[in-house]
């Protein structure tokens, strides 16, 4: 049977070190230093930066260079069909469409890059929102316990059980606004509404397990306020699973977004996200495989890199690792 160790309290995140007058700065400085030593994490960081930059300026460059935009359907009917990557209409090699074209003759590269803007924004913002809500709710429930915990977690259970589709349909009916910005805000509300639930459960489980450890008991005994204990001591110690779960949340919200666009929420065609490009591509996988491979690969590479970055961050922020 595992017994709590008799050794003194585990060092805490932000504990004052000999060389650091201000704890917070030291934490981040140290983390960045460690992160830079992690080659995979650096690689991940570089790729993510590249993808972000390409998504931001790529469509503009392509339009200047070739005239293609995400919604440009060629006027020549002969060009309105799917072309494989690097292939001209006559079958010879061409740089015009490095990712080929879709059924309407649109340049897939332009669509993938523009889709990246949407998917990355959706993935990162929604995950951030779910992190904030999930950690706050989960840590509170786990730390306070008792009736509060009971009430919060039953509330979470209710949210799990309400038919999500109906919520989205109703949201759209009432607020399905006129403006594109309104649609986007609605999308984040819809995505944020679900993605924090499991996060909250995970944080709560961790906090419940941590709160009887000596360093927390010690902090409580010395009269540190609850909010400070949660923020300074408990949350940093749950960051491992939380960061891992957050990196898992990014792909799942990206895919959820393509489901919501089925209900009419989110960006409107001809704009497409990575999720919806992949969903379209899969139908044609036996016929025009590049329509799946190109967006799918871009998405996979980005997620891989984000994940390496996430792992690196996890290790860098890990209070125990720092001790070594």
């Amino acid at each position: 049977m595992a017994t709590p160790s008799s050794s003194p309290a585990v060092p805490q995140a932000g504990a004052p070190g000999a060389d650091a007058p201000v704890a917070g700065t030291s934490l981040w400085k140290d983390a960045v230093k460690r992160l830079r030593k992690n080659r995979l994490a650096v690689f991940g960081f570089v790729v993510v930066c590249l993808v972000v930059t390409a998504s931001l300026v790529g469509p503009w460059i392509i339009e200047r260079a070739t005239g293609y935009t995400y919604d440009y359907i060629p006027t020549d009917p002969a060009l309105v069909n799917a072309q494989p990557p690097f292939t001209a209409p006559d079958g010879s090699f061409s740089w015009l469409h490095p990712m080929g074209t879709d059924d309407a003759g649109r340049d897939i590269l332009a669509r993938v890059l523009l889709g990246g803007r949407i998917s990355l924004m959706v993935g990162v913002i929604s995950t951030f929102v779910s992190l904030i809500i999930g950690i706050t709710v989960g840590a509170t429930a786990g730390y306070v316990g008792g009736k509060v915990d009971e009430a919060i977690m039953r509330g979470v259970d209710v949210l799990y059980s309400i038919p999500y589709m109906m919520v989205v349909i109703v949201l759209l009916a009432f607020f399905g606004g006129r403006s594109a910005i309104g649609q986007l805000v609605l999308l984040f509300i819809a995505l944020g509404a679900v993605s924090w639930l499991t996060m909250a459960r995970i944080v709560r489980g961790q906090v419940m397990s941590l709160k009887s450890q000596e360093f927390i008991l010690a902090a409580r005994a010395t009269g540190v306020p609850a909010s400070r204990i949660i923020l300074r001591h408990l949350v940093p110690n749950t960051l491992g699973p939380v960061i891992v779960y957050a990196t898992l949340t990014i792909p799942s919200v990206m895919l959820l977004e393509s489901f919501l666009s089925f209900l009419g929420l989110g960006v409107q065609a001809p704009l497409a996200s990575w999720g919806s490009l992949a969903a379209d591509g899969i139908q044609n996988i036996a016929v025009f495989p590049w329509q799946l491979i190109c967006p799918g690969l871009t998405m996979a590479v980005t997620l891989f890199s984000l994940n390496f970055l996430g792992d690196g961050l996890r290790d860098a922020l890990d209070p125990q690792m720092r001790k070594g």
Partner: peptide, 28 residues
């Protein structure tokens, strides 16, 4: 969606106007 996108492109090319698209779930 394909049809709507094509029509949007036609109006863009032939009339110079870009009419936005809007999809909805069937019953709505």
């Amino acid at each position: 969606r394909s049809t709507a996108e094509f029509i949007q492109a036609q109006w863009k090319q032939n009339l110079g106007v870009t009419v936005p698209l809007r999809n909805m779930e069937f019953r709505t």
